[in-house]
Design a protein around this nucleic acid. Structure first.
Lengths: 104, 104
DNA sequence: GCCAAACATAAGCCGATACTTATGAGTCGC
DNA sequence: GCGACTCATAAGTATCGGCTTATGTTTGGC
């Protein structure tokens, strides 16, 4: 199931760190590893989970593999969240501004 | 960490089922159990995790405990997701309508 | 062609976790 | 007050998940 893959992928703090790092700009796996204190295989495994969840997509560039955020996964979360918009208004003042801004 | 609790809570399919059932209307733990093929303690444990993640809140009603979706948790997810709104526009046509509708 | 570099896969280990049964803690009806 | 009911907690178990080291695969430079 798609939702299951996504939430399971985001449940791990290391994976969220990787995702957030990629959100600030695509990069290869080696660069991604810096600052995150795990082995190279661990990074590779995490990227595999994120890719299967469609949160990240990859592109071969010679010996390197360039990774970047996949908008599909982000859209899937937004779609899931939209189902519960009935519960948003309660404390959504801050986000409301964001939504207005992105909806010209 | 707040985000960790939320995503970990939603990573389990049974817990998402409970949450989604509560999203269609608050109810007590026994009613919640129907249709979900797990024991009563399992439901109780899941509700504890969802409560700690602020996805669900409870209210004692005599012998029963009434559970309902906590808007705080939903707002927290929305806040997290908002950080990545730069990646939304790609495939966000459907959600766009929803956002417009909830922002008069 | 060969070596080194970048990344993926294999296998194993250990802690986390989702479940169970058994029991405890409150609350209502009689 | 007592039994029944609703729910929470305790304890045990088995599977899952993230990490490691070791090794395989692909690519670029010489």
């Amino acid at each position: 199931m798609v939702e299951n893959d996504i939430f399971r992928a985001l449940a791990d703090p290391t994976r969220r760190l990787i995702f957030e790092k990629l959100a600030s700009g695509g990069m290869n796996a080696s660069a991604l590893r810096e600052g995150i204190g795990v082995s190279q295989p661990a990074i590779s495994q995490h990227l595999g989970v994120l890719r299967d969840a469609r949160l990240v997509r990859e592109e071969r560039r010679g010996r390197f593999v360039h990774y970047e955020v996949d908008p599909d996964g982000v859209a899937l979360i937004a779609g899931w969240l939209a189902k519960y918009r009935a519960y948003w208004p309660a404390r959504m003042d801050a986000l409301r501004g964001v939504l207005k801004e992105m909806d010209p």
